[in-house]
C-alpha cells in the first residue's frame, strides 16, 4: 500500500471493488470460450483443490477437537455435556466450516493463484499469449476461477466431516460423553437444509466465488514488477479475509 498514494483511500477501495466486479463479469462472459480449455480447469482443480486437502483435513480435525474440548469444559458446569455433539455440529456447519475453509483456501490457493498470474503478467507471458491469439482470460483466468468455485464446497465438506470426527474423538473417545447421546442430540437438532445445505453448499460456494475472483483479479492487474507481485499477493489475503468475514455476516443474516 505504501507504494501507492495514500490520499483518497476510500475512493481507491471503492474503485478496486468496482473494477473487481467488472472483471468478474468479464470472467463469466469468458466461461463459454474457456470450455475448450476444460483440461486446464481440471489441472487447476487438482492444484487448488486436491493439493489443499492436507491442510484442510488437519485444520478441520484440530478445530473439531478444540471445540469438543472447550464445549466439554463449559457444558460440564451445567451438566449439559450431552449437548456438545449438537453444538459441535451446528457451529461447524453454520460458521466454522465455511469461514475457516475459506480463510485457509485464500491463504493456500488464493495467494498462489495471484502470484502465478502476477508473474505471468510481470514476465509478459500474458502478452505473449495474446500475440499467439490465445485469449489469456479464457486460458489463464477462467480455469483458475472455476476451479476455486468448485473446490471450495468440496473442501468445506471435507473440513466439516473431519471437524465432527475431531469433536467426536475428544468428546466421546477421550472425555466419555455417551456415543448414542452425542449422535442422537446431533441428529435431533441438525437440519439438512438450514444447517448443512446453507452452510456447506451456499456459504462456501459464495466464499469460493469471492476468494477466487479476488485472487485472479489481483494477479491479473498486478503492476509488472516483483514488488507489485508481492503487494498483490498480500492484498489477496487481506481483501479475501475481510470479504469472507463481512459476507459471512450478510449471508448469515439472510439465511437464518
Amino acid at each position: 500500500m505504501s507504494a501507492q498514494p495514500q490520499r483518497n483511500v476510500i475512493a481507491n477501495a471503492l474503485a478496486q471493488i468496482g473494477e473487481a466486479g467488472l472483471f468478474g463479469l468479464t470472467l463469466l462472459a469468458a466461461v463459454p470460450r474457456s470450455m475448450k480449455h476444460a483440461r486446464e480447469t481440471v489441472r487447476q482443480l487438482w492444484f487448488v483443490g486436491a493439493m489443499s486437502l492436507t491442510i484442510i483435513m488437519v485444520c478441520g480435525l484440530f478445530v473439531g477437537m478444540v471445540l469438543g474440548l472447550q464445549l466439554y469444559y463449559v457444558l460440564s458446569i451445567f451438566g449439559g455435556t450431552a449437548a456438545s455433539g449438537t453444538v459441535v455440529a451446528i457451529a461447524i456447519y453454520r460458521e466454522l466450516g465455511p469461514v475457516v475453509t475459506a480463510l485457509l483456501f485464500a491463504g493456500r490457493a488464493g495467494t498462489s493463484i495471484t502470484a502465478e498470474i502476477g508473474l505471468m503478467r510481470a514476465t509478459d507471458q500474458l502478452a505473449a499469449m495474446e500475440m499467439m491469439a490465445v485469449d489469456p482470460i479464457a486460458y489463464v483466468a477462467v480455469p483458475r476461477y472455476l476451479a476455486g468455485l468448485i473446490a471450495m464446497p468440496l473442501l468445506c465438506a471435507v473440513f466439516c466431516a473431519l471437524g465432527i470426527f475431531g469433536g467426536h474423538l475428544v468428546g466421546v473417545t477421550w472425555l466419555g460423553i455417551d456415543n448414542g447421546t452425542f449422535w442422537s442430540n446431533m441428529t435431533a437438532t441438525v437440519d439438512v437444509w438450514k444447517d448443512v445445505v446453507n452452510g456447506i453448499v451456499i456459504k462456501s460456494a459464495v466464499f469460493g466465488a469471492v476468494v477466487s475472483l479476488i485472487a485472479v483479479y489481483q494477479g491479473y492487474t498486478t503492476p509488472p514488477t516483483s514488488e507489485g507481485v508481492a503487494y498483490a499477493t498480500t492484498r489477496t489475503v487481506v481483501a479475501s479475509s475481510i470479504a469472507i468475514l463481512a459476507l459471512d455476516f450478510v449471508l448469515t443474516a439472510f439465511l437464518m
Binding site: 455440529a89 441428529t187 439438512v192 448443512v196
Partner: peptide
C-alpha cells in the same frame, strides 16, 4: 454429513 449427522 447430510445423511448421518442430521435428522435423516
Amino acid at each position: 454429513l447430510a445423511t448421518q449427522t442430521t435428522s435423516i
